[in-house]
């Protein structure tokens, strides 16, 4: 029996392992329904919608990848799911609550494309990973248990020796590992990752996807936004192919056989080489 997390979270991990729905492990913090539910969502920064007609439901325990070419609205969709943006039309719900009003950060782990954080601030890797515990402690101090979880997360991403390094002096890939560790330290029910492996070396990318798979097996729901089609088809159980609207939503095997990819990406795309979309 494997359970990464302890206490209340371990229950849901075990529940998933024994084939029970996560409903039974409900600890009272939220409903047992879908984690993410979008209904006829439309959104645009200007009058032209960036995404439209999006309906999407993600249940506990799923491993979903959202793929699409550059400018297809992947990151916008993620922001709508997380409640960072509000839909112009339709509704977005997170853990059963309207996404923008949802504020139990302890249930969501988030790894952004590494552009989002401050580039110059003096802060160590450990201090960044500790932020993953902030939703759990609120105004309080981190306990010994919190520090143990932080150390574990650092070890998991192979960054223990870098714990006291200043983040600004790391390579892009190392920094990204720190952010992944921060998300792990949050012990969330839902991990949302926006192109998490950009800048990470190829060997570590494989190890990283193995890690995601291991977490998913323990009952953590994973939502991955990816450019790298090879990684997606190798690992995710379900693919949502996006280009302004949903071109495909279903099991990964069916996605590989379908023509959704060609329709969404244009003819040039393929699974070969593991990077169909052409990274910028």
């Amino acid at each position: 029996m494997s359970a990464l997390r302890n206490g209340e979270s371990a229950e849901s991990a075990e529940a998933a392992d024994t084939g029970l729905a996560a409903d039974d492990a409900d600890d009272g913090r939220g409903s047992s329904g879908p984690l993410v539910e979008l209904a006829d969502v439309e959104f645009g920064y200007t009058a032209t919608p960036v995404v439209e007609d999006i309906s999407l439901r993600i249940d506990p325990g799923e491993y979903v990848a959202i793929v699409g070419p550059n400018g297809s609205g992947k990151s916008t969709l993620m922001k709508l799911i997380l409640g960072l943006l509000r839909p112009d039309e339709g509704s977005a719900r997170l853990f059963g609550e309207p996404s923008h009003a949802f504020d139990d950060g302890a249930r969501i782990g988030y790894v952004a494309q590494h552009a989002s954080a401050s580039k110059e601030m003096p802060i160590t890797v450990r201090e960044v990973v500790k932020m993953g515990r902030f939703p759990h402690v609120g105004f309080g101090r981190l306990s010994a248990e919190d520090h143990r979880i932080v150390d574990e997360a650092l070890a998991t991403v192979g960054m223990s020796d870098f714990a006291n390094r200043r983040v600004t002096k790391l390579s892009g890939g190392q920094r990204q590992r720190a952010f992944i560790a921060r998300a792990l330290a949050g012990e969330a029910d839902l991990l949302v990752l926006d192109e998490p492996t950009v800048g990470v070396d190829a060997e570590s990318v494989d190890a990283f996807y193995d890690l995601l798979e291991a977490l998913n097996e323990e009952g953590i729901t994973i939502l991955l936004i990816e450019h790298d089609l090879g990684a997606v088809t190798d690992h995710a159980r379900r693919v949502v192919c996006l280009n302004r609207e949903v071109y495909f939503d279903g099991p990964t095997d069916e996605f590989v056989e379908s023509d959704a990819l060609a329709r969404a990406f244009g003819t040039a795309a393929s699974f070969a080489g593991g990077s169909g979309g052409g990274r910028t």
């Binding site: 302890a106 401050s118 105004f139």
Partner: peptide, 21 residues
């Protein structure tokens, strides 16, 4: 009192927002 929140918002506004701050 609010050092955790202020630090998170200062370092990474988006991630802070996702974490419920």
């Amino acid at each position: 009192l609010t050092r955790n929140q202020l630090l998170y918002v200062t370092f990474d506004e988006t991630a802070a927002a996702v974490s419920g701050i």
